[in-house]
Design a binder for these strands. Structure first.
Lengths: 157, 157
DNA sequence: GAAATATATATCGTGCACGATTTAATCGAC
DNA sequence: GTCGATTAAATCGTGCACGATATATATTTC
């Protein structure tokens, strides 16, 4: 099927054909989809999508209400992605969006009581996923660091 | 900011707040975006998006024209994702979509000459990305296998 | 302090990506 | 051979995700 190990190639035909299965990028791409699927049943109970959950996680971990720009830098998402997503979370009653009095260009995102409360209801999820991953905590941490390093290098380049 | 190592928590407040940066899922999520950005300048010259490039890669590596279902299983994408994507590639003149004579439910995807030819023009890209990753080939292969294992485990669970 | 510049969000258009549903063809039971 | 069940694509609606652009506030220059 993928014929990586069958060099039948003899010049006239195409360059060695790397199938998606051979590529690092595809492993990441498909792993993200699998991850999103794994989260889905848990997040459905909270009424969240995976990207919404990431934003909520950032807010739960923040010491003070961040601006849209801070979230944008932390999550590496454009304002054109975040703005509508944040509006949806606002409509759900999980957060508020308020222009900063000091700098009216910025918008501060603050959790509501309901948004804060959801943290407790989400606390078990990470553990479930970790278990489902079939990898040890050590392996997962190593993998996380390797993947983060790859990401940072790609950004710099 | 993320306060992973500052256990100021004392019961009344939220459970330990895992920030996105601490999570394996986020490292994968952000790495995929970074990867897509890294591919962008190369793929722009071909007029392809990253998912379109994946489909083309699958076709370049295939021995015979696969069906939509085969591509769906290989790339783990729904027909609702593939069908419009394939239609765009067809419009670009890179492939043809033809119902199988043996089984009229299936649609066979075949490269056109132009689509076949693009393989050569894309051959250098993987190497550029590998270089940009700042990781050795060995490291990349190990990472690929680890990430693939994680993905497969998540799917099974 | 007015004009030029820079920064922070928001808006718009396009293309994934999925779940749910639909349509159409094949297969099975009888 | 016909009816019911299964399978393969396609369609529909929603929500990311981005680049390009717009808008509005802040900063800098003069």
């Amino acid at each position: 099927m993928t014929q990586t190990s069958t060099p039948t190639d003899s010049g006239t035909t195409a360059p060695q054909a790397l199938s998606p299965q051979d590529m690092v990028c595809f492993s990441l791409y498909s792993a993200v989809h699998a991850m999103s699927q794994a989260y889905r049943p848990h997040l459905e109970k909270l009424g969240l999508t995976y990207p919404q959950y990431l934003v909520m996680s950032a807010l739960w971990a923040a010491e003070a209400p961040p601006t849209v720009g801070m979230l944008s830098r932390q999550l590496q998402l454009e304002s054109s992605t975040l703005t509508p997503l944040l509006k949806r979370l606002e409509t759900m009653g999980l957060l508020t969006r308020r222009r900063d009095a000091e700098d009216e260009r910025q918008v501060r995102i603050a959790l509501t009581g309901e948004g804060q409360q959801m943290h407790g209801r989400s606390a078990h999820i990470a553990g479930c996923i970790a278990e489902q991953s079939g990898m040890s905590v050590e392996e997962l941490l190593t993998l996380r660091d390797q993947v983060s390093r790859l990401r940072d290098n790609l950004r710099k380049g």
